[in-house]
Design a binder for these strands. Structure first.
Length: 482
RNA sequence: GGCCCCAUCGUCUAACGGUUAGGACACUACCCUUUCAAGGUAGACAUACGGGUUCGAAUCCCGUUGGGGUCACCA
């Protein structure tokens, strides 16, 4: 039987890094075993749907280059891959369990449930769930009430005694007492299934062999096992991956960190860097390498190398890793075109006419390569390349004021240079400093201030070349008048 | 609170009974240098605690503590 894994995200907001994390592990494991990676959208909670969220998730996977073998958009032999479209099937499954006496109709209202919980809490009961008041109701009687139009849910009749053991691939056997299990709702009063029913039925129907999901699901796994058993289906392999945590070591959420993949994309994080970073959360390469691709992961992945403690998402390290991709992985040509596309996509171009994907742009990108970790830093660090309308920083101003002599010298002599290639200007500066008996810095900083408006910039040679003689001279002139 | 999971530098991690407990991010110096970076070198920083088992425990067992999760007609 071929290995089949899935992610089952809910379309309830921006695409979540946790979803990307799960997608990565599910994708890698499926590919490593020559199997299939499936995306199924879990939208049975009709109240929490967010417009566009489904597309957002699919877009994210495309951006990350983790294409599913089967999904709502590419389809597949088990379509539909949108859970709400399978609701009729879930209702049939629920009925099947009711008919078999493994589940029952239940008529309590949400308010009554609330009272039950409060009462159980007040008594200090160990079991704080549903009191099972309809579990023993005669099925015929129950059916009669349902037929009469009374609102009901379908609940699983879990065993009251004994234990349910979850065999987790990462943690071994995890034992739960059945007396602590709840008669979980399988079908809600709106006729839609809960996650418990829907996910198990769909996993079974879709032939999922390995359920790889976040640790938060571990404690509801005994219920899932009971559902499988009620149907008489063989269990999949359970794998509960370690937590991705936010600040303070709490579950990663909007409150504890940035969870939106869109937001990382907007910051100019490369998809391969994000994936690489996610890959080193909870897993490591056998040789300790930190820079690795999804392909590398497929080659070397094993559950044995997964560490179980949760990992705190550290943006500083992601940033560093992104910088590594910019500096060491992408070619200049690749970098330039992707950066250009990024700027276009985020409408960050300062001047659409001059900021084309041309030689100057490439020269500037090359200069910035060791100087940026994120694409979003690019414009702020290069604005003076694209416009004459730039300010002098406080420090630059100070230097300009005390260097008029050098600047006018420079203006005069620079204008006689044949060309502004780095070699020519480099020799020129050396000679000038030598002649004047001053340090190179005394020549460079005024010029830097004049040309860039700041004392922090790329090297002078390439910078002057990219700017060109005309602009450089004009800027020195402007600085002298300042 | 009940139940469940987890526990190595601040952070991500290596070590699968024997290492001066290694690497990376961040941090601090220094080197390189026309500034800023990048790069290089160095430094500081960890096995939560207490019992066992063993000739020998970060590693195995138990307990404690700590952290997290979960107890929905949400997934």
């Amino acid at each position: 039987m071929s290995t089949r894994t899935r992610i089952a995200p809910s379309p309830t907001g921006d695409p979540h890094v946790g979803t990307a994390y799960q997608a990565l592990f599910n994708y890698v494991f499926a590919h490593q075993n020559g199997g299939q990676f499936i995306v199924r959208i879990e939208d049975t909670d009709r109240n929490r749907l967010v417009e566009g969220a489904l597309e957002g998730i699919l877009d994210m996977l495309e951006w990350l280059n983790l294409p599913p073998h089967e999904s709502p958009t590419v389809g597949g032999p088990h379509a539909p891959y949108i859970q709400s479209e399978r609701a009729e099937k879930h209702r049939q499954y629920a009925q099947q369990l009711v008919d078999a006496g493994k589940a029952y109709l239940s008529f309590e209202t949400p308010e009554e449930l609330e009272e039950m919980r409060a009462a159980a809490a007040a008594r200090g009961d160990e079991y704080g769930g549903y009191d099972r008041r309809y579990r023993t109701l005669d099925p015929l009687e129950a059916q009669k009430r349902a037929d009469a139009g009374e609102s009901y849910v379908v609940r699983l009749k879990v065993p009251l005694e004994g234990e349910t053991v979850v065999q987790d691939l990462l943690r071994g056997a995890v034992t739960f007492k059945n007396s602590e299990l709840d008669d979980k709702i399988l079908l809600k009063s709106d006729g839609f299934p809960t996650y418990h029913l829907a996910a198990m039925c769909d996993d079974f129907d879709m032939g999922i062999t390995h359920v790889i999901r976040a640790e938060e699901w571990l404690v509801s796994t005994p219920i899932h096992i009971q559902i499988y058993r009620a149907f008489g289906w063989p269990e999949p392999q359970w794998i509960h991956t370690p937590w991705l945590l936010g600040d303070g070591g709490k579950k990663l959420s909007k409150r504890t960190g940035d969870v939106s993949v869109k937001s990382y994309r907007a910051k100019g994080v490369l998809p391969e860097a994000l994936l690489n970073y996610l890959g080193m959360m909870g897993w490591s390469m056998p040789d300790g390498r930190e820079l690795f691709s999804v392909q590398d992961m497929e080659e070397h992945f094993s559950w044995e190398r997964v560490s179980l403690g949760g990992s705190i998402f550290d943006f500083a390290k992601l940033k560093w890793l992104n910088g590594k991709y910019i500096r060491e992985v992408l070619s200049l040509e690749e970098l330039a075109s992707r950066l250009h596309a990024y700027l276009l996509e985020n409408s960050l171009l300062e001047n659409g006419e001059t900021l084309e994907l041309n030689t100057t742009f490439r020269q500037v990108v090359k200069m910035l390569t060791p100087r940026m970790d994120l694409f979003s830093e690019f414009m702020a660090k290069t604005h003076y390349f694209w416009s004459e309308d730039f300010e002098y920083t406080e420090k630059a101003r100070g230097v300009l004021e005390s260097s008029r002599e050098v600047l006018s010298d420079l203006l005069e002599r620079l204008s006689t240079l044949e060309n502004f290639s780095p070699e020519v200007t480099h020799d020129f500066f050396q000679a000038y400093a030598l002649e004047k008996g001053i340090k190179l810095g005394k020549v460079m900083s005024p010029l830097r201030a004049a040309v860039a408006g700041t004392l922090e910039s790329p090297e002078m040679g390439p910078m002057l070349e990219a700017l060109g003689k005309e602009k450089v001279l004009a800027r020195v002139r402007r600085a002298l008048e300042f």
